[in-house]
Nucleic acid binder design. Structure first.
Length: 308
RNA sequence: GGUGCCAUAGCUCAGUUGGUAGAGCAACGGACUGAAAAUCCGUGUGUCCCUAGUUCGAUUCUUGGUGGCACCA
């Protein structure tokens, strides 16, 4: 007897369109959503901040008007936000959207956010800001060795697994240990959640050279649109996490006199390329991705309609 | 036309008292469980301009070219 549980066909479907920055996802997503008469959920950790529009390449007003978008400009740079919140809010929103639409489109480039929604993410309490602040201060004062010692004591199991050179990973684990009084690793199940809807993953892809040309061009367009002025208005808040973002941090450095404007622009181009590469690595290991050229809209629409 | 200096990685350059070479940046590869456009890790990719010598051996020394720069005409 064959086990047929995994091949169950759902009533609803999420079409996920993810890929590196500047590949042309926005246009593809809008065309697909229009063809399917549905809405778009953005999964972009930076387009959520309403103060950051030019540098995050949010869709044009006409594009936003053509198809309803969610999770764009819904936060302020002062807000705390995390993947788990995104997962929860997204699931709730999908519940609502699936009452009206058979299919919903998700588009963006934040791999962790995509995976949190598609595969689920383990649940543990949100860490008190006070605890985060304490751990951060200790790290700044005493360095990564301190973090390692702490983690070895609080959660030896995770200590053995974590990248001990990555302070962010260690800090997160310590924070959760301190918050809950339990080892961070005790929250990790590595279990994939099943979702009550089908998921089709499309990865718009083009030759690297083409992608890099688009990144260069888009950087110029952002500058013409007034990215510098946008960054200047955010300069006082440059320490906020939301502003640790390509396109802004390089201009802050320019304002600090670290380098001239041309250098800053060149660094934006380079850092955007690096970012795109990281995204390619992330999405590339997902075997469910269907690679398609973003210019072949009709094929993508057909795939979005037909695939289960 | 003459004299001098230079030619080494994609770029800027270092170096080898003769044993086929290494830095920075760029580039490339990878990891990723609540700050993820973040954070972290790894990799040298080379007719050492060409040619003929000297030498066991030349990217290194010598001859002659070629190209670039500077100065003098």
């Amino acid at each position: 007897m064959q086990n047929k549980i995994d091949t169950k066909i759902h009533d609803h479907k999420l079409v996920v369109i993810v890929g590196p920055t500047a590949i042309g996802k926005t246009r593809v997503a809008i065309e697909v959503a229009k063809a399917l008469g549905t809405e778009i959920i953005s999964c972009d950790s930076r387009q959520m901040y309403r103060e950051m529009r030019i540098g995050t390449a949010v869709p044009e007003p006409e594009e936003l008007a053509a198809v309803p978008h969610h999770f764009i400009g819904n936060l302020s740079v002062f807000d705390y936000y995390n993947v788990s919140m995104f997962e929860q809010e997204c699931l709730q929103l999908l519940d609502k959207l699936f009452q009206e639409h058979q299919t919903v489109v998700m588009a963006g480039g934040s791999g962790l956010y995509v995976d949190a929604l598609c595969k689920g993410i383990d649940d543990f309490p949100t860490v008190d800001p006070e605890i985060r602040r304490t751990v951060t201060e200790k790290f700044e004062e005493e360095g990564i060795e301190y973090l390692r010692r702490q983690l070895r004591m609080l959660d030896p199991e995770h200590y053995a697994k974590v990248d001990l050179r990555n302070h962010k990973r260690i800090m997160k684990a310590i924070e959760v240990c301190l918050q809950t009084g339990m080892p961070y690793s005790s929250f990790l199940t590595a279990q994939q959640r099943t979702r009550p809807f089908g998921i089709v993953k499309i990865l718009p892809d083009r030759p690297r050279e083409e992608l890099f040309e688009r990144i260069n061009r888009r950087t110029d367009i952002m500058m013409e649109k007034g990215l510098l002025a946008e960054a200047e208005s955010l300069y006082p808040h440059r320490r906020l996490n939301a502003l640790n973002t390509v396109g802004y941090k390089e201009l802050f450095a320019y304002m600090d006199g670290v380098h001239d404007l041309n250098t800053a622009t060149e660094l934006i181009r380079r850092n955007t390329r690096h970012y795109a590469k990281r995204q390619l690595t992330w999405f590339g290991r997902d075997a469910e991705m269907i690679r398609m050229h973003p210019d072949k809209i009709d094929e993508i629409i057909r795939t979005a309609e037909e695939q289960q």
